[in-house]
Amino acid sequence: MHPALQMKNITQLPPSIRDVASKAAGNSRTSKDVAAARNLLNVYPRLSSFQRFALLPVFFVNLDPEKIPTAEDLDTSRRRPAIREEVLCALSALDAVLNLGAPEDVGPSLWPRVRN
């Protein structure tokens, strides 16, 4: 895995941003948490490149193929009420990654998650 995707990078963020990022990467995250982390990229236009890239682990964790529902899961969504949340988290994360302008050498580590 590329070093930019390691969760420890979040600790390098200013406290207010770190709190949002940690919540969006946590086990009990919601789609609102992930959307809030994605919105940091727009709300804080003065984030340095380093700070923007320190948010990458948040989006990486939300693109985990284990958490993204399969087509079969979508067909049986009545059995999994949280499926909408999982889809929304993944969509917010993908949107953020696409708009973040991540360094090109991160691509090979992200691609297996994006293409699933």
Rank of each mutant, 00 (worst) to 15 (best):
E66Y: 05
Q12G: 13
L91E: 04
R18I: 13
L55F: 02
A96N: 01
L40C: 02
N116C: 15
P112F: 07
R113M: 08
N116D: 10
W111F: 15
R18D: 04
A96M: 08
V34S: 01
L98H: 10
L94V: 09
L55M: 05
E85Q: 04
E86R: 00
Y44R: 11
H2Q: 08
G26K: 09
P14C: 08
L56A: 06
L41K: 02
L56V: 07
E86C: 01
V43E: 00
N39L: 09
S49L: 14
R79Q: 10
S48I: 12
A24R: 05
M1C: 08
E72T: 10
A102M: 12
A21G: 03
A24C: 06
L5P: 12
K32N: 03
G107I: 15
R46P: 07
D33A: 11
K67M: 11
A82P: 08
E72Q: 11
C89T: 04
A24T: 03
E104C: 15
P81R: 03
A102K: 11
L91S: 04
E72H: 05
D64N: 03
K32L: 12
F60S: 02
S48F: 03
F59I: 09
S31G: 04
D19G: 13
R18L: 09
A36G: 02
D33K: 12
R115Q: 15
P69N: 05
V20A: 09
P15F: 03
R115H: 15
N9T: 10
V114Y: 05
L13K: 06
L94I: 14
P65E: 00
S31V: 05
L94N: 05
V34L: 04
N9R: 14
P3H: 11
R38T: 08
Q6L: 14
A36P: 02
V106F: 02
Y44V: 14
L88G: 07
A71D: 05
P81L: 04
E104P: 15
L55A: 06
P112L: 11
K67P: 02
V34K: 02
D64M: 00
P57W: 00
E86H: 01
V20Y: 02
E86V: 00
N116H: 14
K32Y: 03
T70L: 06
V87R: 01
S31L: 03
L110H: 00
A90F: 01
P15G: 06
G107C: 15
R38M: 07
I17E: 04
S31Y: 01
F53L: 12
T30H: 01
F59V: 10
V61G: 03
V43I: 11
Q12R: 15
K8N: 13
A37P: 02
R46E: 07
E85K: 05
A93C: 11
R115D: 10
S77L: 14
Y44K: 10
M1Y: 08
P57M: 00
A35P: 00
G101T: 12
A90Y: 00
A82E: 10
E66V: 13
S48E: 09
L55Q: 05
T11D: 08
R78W: 07
V114S: 05
L47K: 04
N39I: 09
I17T: 13
F50S: 11
A90I: 00
